[in-house]
Design a protein around this nucleic acid. Structure first.
Lengths: 186, 186
DNA sequence: GAGGTGGGTGACTGATCACTCACTGACTGC
DNA sequence: GCAGTCAGTGAGTGATCAGTCACCCACCTC
């Protein structure tokens, strides 16, 4: 195989490329369902080098999950800042819109679902709690909404996860429309 | 190994025993994370016989998931029937209580989360949609509540899933209490 | 241009697991 | 009491996969 004489990058740059690939591939096939080789292929490097960049598969998944929450938090924060309506409900609504835009490609959201399923792996469960904590406290402080409103915001976010994982937005039946009504999704 | 001279059962009876075991074991370790052998051990039969009773692992998981929705539907239905307050909100509340009792052991709920993660397997996705359809239509017709109220009921149910999968009910921090406030869980 | 550093890989290994198959032994109808 | 049926199993098999190790070569420094 003739190596295409690609310039070598730094390990740090490779790491973030691999994390990007990990988000995309893990989100499609889940933690146990994706071989390291699939992520390596997506990142155009060898599986051996992925194993060199991350101590094990678990650490790679956690890194991807952390990055996923990082991006979600940034999007929500941006939504809150650019909201025209400065009332708590207005800000919450703007955050919801920003979140909807962010998860248009569904991978951030799917990764969270897969993380829930793999939460019995201690490190993954801990990363998940970290991420939810960051989102929750951020939503509360940025919006100034009541605890009940923040809880509702998160609850409808979870409903959104259900809709996307089951593809309910493409089911034309009445019961499906009942569940998807008013939920912003791509 | 001296066979303990156990009376043979019918394949039909074995099947439902295995489905019981499958619910319990799959709910702990997920679809890809549980070997058939673990379910067989729980059911006190050989892995080979599990493979004889079900065409493949996927079919076994789907059978467990169907049973899980069956039980959830029955519990909700019972809750609706025995509600003292006959207003839609009262019935919804009674259903919520019945559901909370049912999922005290968490396996039905966890299985649903694992199913969401494995929903890209066509048969599993289909079973999940079937189950959600049954629950949704049942909740709507039994309670007589508005579409918005039913949607809210499902959304907070999903929040409950998040709480249980991440063990948020045992996190003493303020952000965690914000999310768990008022949610009935065991 | 010699030598060192570090990005990157091929080839392997040991373990796990879904599924199969040939078989045993318990029950049943005659 | 014999023949057929069906519950149930042990011992495989082939495939997949996480992680390792010895190694190669691009680039930098002096």
């Amino acid at each position: 195989m003739p190596a295409p004489a690609v310039r070598l990058s730094t390990a740090e740059a490779r790491r973030s490329i691999v994390i990007d690939s990990a988000i995309q591939v893990f989100s499609l096939t889940g933690y146990l369902g994706t071989p390291i080789a699939a992520i390596a292929e997506h990142a155009h490097i060898s599986p051996a080098y992925v194993s060199k960049l991350f101590p094990n598969k678990e650490a790679l998944f956690v890194a991807a999950l952390d990055e996923c929450f990082e991006r979600a938090g940034a999007a929500l924060s941006r939504g809150a800042e650019t909201s025209v309506d400065r009332s708590p409900d207005g800000i919450l609504s703007a955050m919801g819109g920003a979140y909807a835009d962010l998860i248009a490609d569904r991978s951030l959201l799917m990764l969270q679902v897969h993380a829930q399923s793999a939460a019995t792996v201690p490190e993954i469960g801990a990363a998940l709690r970290r991420g939810i904590e960051a989102i929750t406290t951020m939503v509360r402080s940025s919006s100034g909404a009541t605890d009940e409103a923040v809880q509702r915001f998160v609850a409808y976010g979870q409903l959104c996860h259900l809709i996307v994982t089951t593809g309910l937005d493409e089911v034309p039946a009445e019961w499906a429309r009942l569940l998807t009504a008013g939920i912003r999704h791509p």
